[in-house]
């Protein structure tokens, strides 16, 4: 049970934090279409995290809103990658590819999970995530084959983000238990599949991922960058004014 909860928390926290970061583009996107896309993807992610928090609630954890808004940074299990401030559009777009391809790999694998709820949710999420990965790929392809300025900016964003992306696949203390129970494969197996997908897409476009540079573990254990707590403070500001209010 602990193993399953750890898995659910890290996935839900990834989605909530990434969703919130993407929602920061509302009104600020470089194009109206991108503004809408990032906002829509944010909505999907936060919605998916709610589904997982609801499952955690059925397994005895607190209410989804309490879990989302009342924890401090050290109690979150998201990868550090998703909490980094958006900075520039190229940064957000490159993270979008790295994270959503990882989501695609993870939920594709979970469709075969022995945990029936998770297998069903994974099927639902996979259809939604397909639009996210297609969006990331289509924008990146256009920009990486466009001007030299666009290519340079995206390449820099890639080198900045790539090491952090390794944190998505930080090994879990429960890994042997989870894979023996048929719930999910080992993180390194998923990472291998993800590196293949990212490389197959980026190599022909001139960006060369190097799997030996992947790192930045700690997020899964609650060790975060200095950026998470201020984001949580802002995200939960209204909720914390009156946690018992009916919305």
């Amino acid at each position: 049970m602990l193993a399953l909860k750890e898995l659910l928390y890290k996935m839900a926290d990834d989605q909530l934090i990434y969703g919130h970061r993407n929602s920061e583009w509302i009104g600020l996107g470089p194009l109206l279409e991108e503004d809408i896309s990032f906002a829509s993807i944010a909505q999907d992610k936060v919605g998916q995290s709610r589904v997982l928090y609801n499952l955690l609630h059925r397994l005895g954890e607190a209410e989804p809103d309490t879990v989302a808004f009342m924890r401090n940074a050290s109690q979150f299990h998201n990868a550090i990658l998703v909490e980094l401030p958006c900075q520039a559009y190229e940064f957000a777009l490159m993270r979008h590819l790295l994270f959503d391809e990882a989501e695609a790999v993870r939920f594709e694998a979970l469709r075969a999970s022995s945990q029936a709820d998770l297998a069903a949710f994974a099927a639902k999420f996979s259809g939604e995530i397909k639009y996210h990965t297609l969006h990331a790929r289509s924008m990146l392809k256009r920009l990486l084959t466009g001007s030299e300025e666009a290519f340079t900016k995206l390449q820099e964003a890639f080198y900045q983000l790539w090491p952090y992306a390794g944190g998505i696949f930080e090994p879990s203390p429960y890994e042997a238990e989870l894979s023996a129970a048929g719930i999910i494969e080992a993180e390194q197996v998923l990472q291998g599949r993800w590196v293949e997908r990212i490389s197959a897409f980026l190599e022909p476009l001139g960006i060369h991922p190097d799997a030996t540079l992947l790192g930045h573990w700690g997020g899964r254990l609650g060790q975060h960058s200095e950026h998470l707590q201020p984001m949580l403070d802002e995200m939960s500001e209204v909720f914390r004014l009156d946690p018992t209010a009916e919305w």
Partner: peptide
């Protein structure tokens, strides 16, 4: 197609 996301999650522009 101008955008795969629209005014609602189920719609494109």
């Amino acid at each position: 197609m101008k955008s795969p996301f629209g005014p609602a999650l189920c719609r494109s522009l």
